[in-house]
Simulated assay, not measured.
Amino acid sequence: MQNHTNKKQPNNPLHGMKLLTILELLVDHYGWEELANKISINCFKNDPSIKSSLKFLRKTPWARDKVEQLYLELNRKIG
């Protein structure tokens, strides 16, 4: 029998969430300056934009993990 855990992840709050959506929610909530204070990466500090941040986060797993963790923390607070 095959394992189908990758198809449905009911306990994973990130399942089905696009990085774009996560980033937009964080920017709307914190703003770029506060986001840069919480996650110290240049794409949030210097001339930040959704497009440049997405490009960086998609190729930098450790930074993406930090963004996802911050989203999860925010989700728990306002949930």
Rank of each mutant, 00 (worst) to 15 (best):
G31E: 14
G16Q: 03
M1T: 14
I50S: 02
R64F: 09
K66F: 13
L57T: 01
T60E: 14
S52R: 02
L14T: 05
M1I: 13
L57Y: 03
E73S: 10
K59I: 04
A36Q: 03
G31V: 13
V27Q: 10
K18I: 02
I78P: 06
Y30I: 04
H15M: 03
N6K: 11
L14S: 01
I39G: 05
P61R: 00
L20H: 11
Q2V: 06
D47L: 12
W32I: 01
W62A: 09
W62C: 00
P13M: 14
K66P: 07
I39H: 01
D65G: 01
Y71K: 09
R76D: 15
M17P: 07
N37H: 12
Q9F: 07
E68H: 11
I22T: 03
R64Y: 08
M17Q: 15
L25M: 12
N42C: 06
P48F: 10
E34S: 13
E68K: 12
L72W: 10
I50N: 06
E73A: 09
P10T: 10
M17S: 05
N75E: 15
E24P: 00
C43D: 01
N42I: 12
V67T: 14
N6W: 15
T21F: 00
N75L: 11
L23Y: 10
Y71I: 07
F44T: 01
R76F: 01
E68P: 04
D65T: 07
Q69V: 12
I41Y: 03
I50V: 12
E24D: 10
G16P: 04
P13C: 14
N11M: 00
D28I: 00
L54I: 09
W62S: 12
I78D: 13
N6G: 03
N46G: 00
K38L: 15
L26M: 07
H4Q: 14
C43H: 07
L26I: 03
A36K: 00
I39K: 08
S53G: 02
N46S: 14
P48E: 05
I22Q: 11
D28G: 11
K51C: 06
L74I: 02
D47Y: 12
W32P: 01
H15P: 02
Q9W: 09
L26T: 03
